[in-house]
């Protein structure tokens, strides 16, 4: 890509990434949540790859890492849900922490944790799909 695109991407992608993190962590206070924030975080990485490009070897490494992140994030969500079953009551995905004050950043029990790990899962899943397409194209065309 040209120099204009590269410079603009360098300025923008950090802002997009921070906005995604904000949407994830404030999911229980303001509109948004794990899904929207996760897609934003994945979008910032996709923007970088589209603008700068990179060789297949590095991309392949990133792909395995994002795949591992995705699997472990959804495993942690399941573990959190099972802990809820044993900690209090007999309900799967039970909200067992203290709620705290409604409207504070640290409140709502387990909901922020679920938001963070679902955000990780969504971000790495989308990034994995994108990287799989890019690597496939590069490998097949050569």
């Amino acid at each position: 890509m040209s120099k204009i695109v590269k410079t603009a991407t360098g300025l923008l992608c950090g802002v997009v990434f921070m906005y995604g993190l904000y949407i994830i962590t404030h999911g229980h206070l303001t509109p948004g949540g794990g899904f929207a924030g996760g897609v934003l975080v994945a979008g910032s990485f996709i923007l970088l790859i589209l603008a700068y490009g990179s060789d297949v070897l590095m991309l392949r490494k990133e792909e395995t890492e994002s795949s591992v992140t995705e699997s472990s994030a959804i495993l942690i969500v399941l573990i959190l849900a099972v802990i809820g079953m044993f900690a209090g009551g007999a309900a799967f995905m039970n909200n067992y922490f203290q709620f705290g004050e409604v409207g504070e950043l640290i409140s709502a029990g387990v909901i922020p944790l679920y938001n963070i790990f679902i955000g990780m899962e969504v971000a790495s899943a989308l990034l994995t799909i994108f990287l799989a397409f890019v690597i496939y194209k590069k490998e097949v065309l050569k």
């Binding site: 949540g33 409604v102 709502a108």
Partner: peptide
């Protein structure tokens, strides 16, 4: 649920 955003409360609880 203790969450100020009702939609997230419904989604995760």
């Amino acid at each position: 649920t203790g969450s100020a955003n009702l939609v997230t409360g419904v989604l995760f609880d």
